[in-house]
Write a protein that binds this DNA or RNA. Structure first.
Lengths: 325, 325
DNA sequence: ATGAAAGCGCTAACAC
DNA sequence: GTGTTAGCGCTTTCAT
């Protein structure tokens, strides 16, 4: 920067201004400076800039795992939204462990991220306390809560599960099973399902849990177990489409007609849900939009002078009825 | 840090040493300092540290899109490998555009990443030149080349395509089609296929290209086109499993028996390839391992004094023969 | 509209 | 083993 300033015969501040507040520099000098920058191939050091300005232009995000299409989609949306405003994404995976999430978050704080995007609303209490204390802008995602750390973008997993229960009950299904990841959000969907069925006075509910990340084979294997345990099962709700597709394939293998002898409902509305045969009834969730909305919420929060924009954004969900249920 | 030093009655350097080179500090004083750190809840500012040490502890990575399971898997492996050594991942998406890749890379350079992981070996010449000039450690992935910028971790897409061609020819297939993404690596697979078929004196090859990122529906739609254009098609190679599964569903829809009336070969060996019915013959590629290997290569490069470890790592591929071909 | 001075919080190099 | 002295490359604040 020193060199550029000399080359353009101005002070270093002026070079800095040309880069950060171009309007505050007379067009003529601006031109000279830009020319010098180009000629010298100068690339400003944003680390030094961050230290001086106390803004890094980096947002930290933590997801349980990138190998889940839905979280990858959320990060896709987030990265793209941030990139439009020159922010960069620092990404970490918690592997579904709250302690790893906390460690990553602490690391991100040390790296002076301008904000944090977390998955879920359940975190280590020490982390929540810390985040509140340092007043770091935070967006929690994929769920809703009445007590967010700062801001939350998601939908009600409980309501979604309930909607599935209503749909199955209305379709006359009475022997219902659930296959889901052993994980907070999936369990909320299960609770929604249970709530709905209980209200209708349903008898038992057969549940199989798998360790996340859910694999397609888990869906097949667990459906097998469910079917052996309860041969007259007539419907199964899977906590995500990956499991549901696995269940669907298992039915094909066993020549158990879907939806006639078994209804299958998935969750996520991945592309495969509408492509498979029979097509999959599922709950469409705004995976990518969660990332986009989280990004917008943060950008607003970071560029607005007053910081009073903490809020809850309910992006909703939609039951997509297709052939499988 | 000032406060911690005062609290522990030592100089700031000592605090710094306790954090970065604990062995160089006497155990007793180390204890005192750690206690002071704990009591004050001090979190070191890694931005300032980066500026002073000229090492950021951040690796930049650029993929075309996170919504492709294979790139997400590579990033999963990379992030996990780096995290083990305390490095952090800064992630960007190029949306399959070389210009966006370059812009992201420039941004990462400005943010002083310690190294860069790129997808593919084809980049803007200006970027390649710049990367070489500043001698930034770089790993190119998902392909091989005789002229890497620095280091390359991947496999031969051409050879993989060729292996598929051999397999199909040996199985007696003579009317072969290709459905692939309009993108460098997919085209290399196509060229491998063509090379193989030409050697055997095959006639035409029906090709359908789709704009990336490939969606399952593209596979269905393009197979439909291919079948109309060439009703006696007896095999199709898809440049990834997503397209292949789409093609498979299309066959189910048309009641065209797989593999009897049409052989389908995919690419990637996603979990669904072994789960679908019929199971998918495909080329298994080390998606996650590419990330892990890239991470290890970088860690070695960044922690080793001499910097003579630039190299090419061929992780290979494997043709997995299943029911579909 | 531009500049001069004073840091941002840390680590490198060299003493002691 | 520990401390002293100088920055790292930029932005801030305040003056002109």
């Amino acid at each position: 920067m020193e060199d550029v300033a000399r080359e353009a015969k101005v002070a270093r501040v002026t070079v800095s201004r040309v880069l950060n507040e171009p309007d505050k520099v007379k067009p003529t000098t601006r031109k000279v400076v830009l020319e010098a920058i180009r000629r010298l191939g100068y690339v400003p050091d944003r680390v030094a800039g961050s230290l001086a300005s106390r803004r890094s232009g980096v947002i930290g995000a933590i997801v349980p795992s990138l190998s889940n299409a839905w979280f990858a989609d959320t990060m896709d949306g987030l990265a793209e939204t941030l990139a439009e405003s020159g922010f960069q994404l620092m990404l970490g995976q918690s592997r579904y462990r709250l302690e790893e999430e906390e460690a990553l978050a602490e690391s991100f704080i040390g790296r002076r991220v301008d904000a944090l995007v977390l998955t879920g609303v359940h975190h280590m209490p020490s982390l929540v306390q810390r985040l509140r204390q340092i007043k770091l802008p935070v967006v929690e995602t994929w769920e809703l809560t009445t007590d967010p750390i700062d801001c939350v973008v998601g939908f009600s997993n409980f309501s979604a599960g309930k909607a599935v229960g209503e749909h199955l009950w209305r379709s006359g299904r009475r022997h219902i099973g659930f296959i889901g990841a052993h994980e907070k959000r999936a369990v909320q969907r299960l609770e929604g399902l249970q709530d709905s069925l209980q209200k209708h006075g349903a008898s038992e509910l057969n549940v199989e849990l798998v360790e996340p990340p859910s694999a397609i084979h888990d869906g097949s294997a667990k459906l097998g177990l469910l079917l052996e345990r309860c041969p007259d099962l007539d419907a199964v709700f899977c906590s995500n489409d990956t499991l549901a597709v696995g269940a669907l394939f298992e039915c094909q293998k066993r020549h158990r007609a879907v939806p006639n002898r078994l209804a299958i409902v998935g969750f996520s509305d991945l592309p495969i849900a509408s492509a498979c045969i029979p097509s999959l009834t599922t709950v469409r969730v705004p995976a990518r939009n969660i990332g986009v909305a989280a990004g917008h919420a943060l950008l607003k929060r970071l560029t607005t002078p007053n910081e009073a924009s903490a809020q809850a954004i309910d992006l909703g969900f939609e039951l997509i009825t297709r052939e499988s249920a």
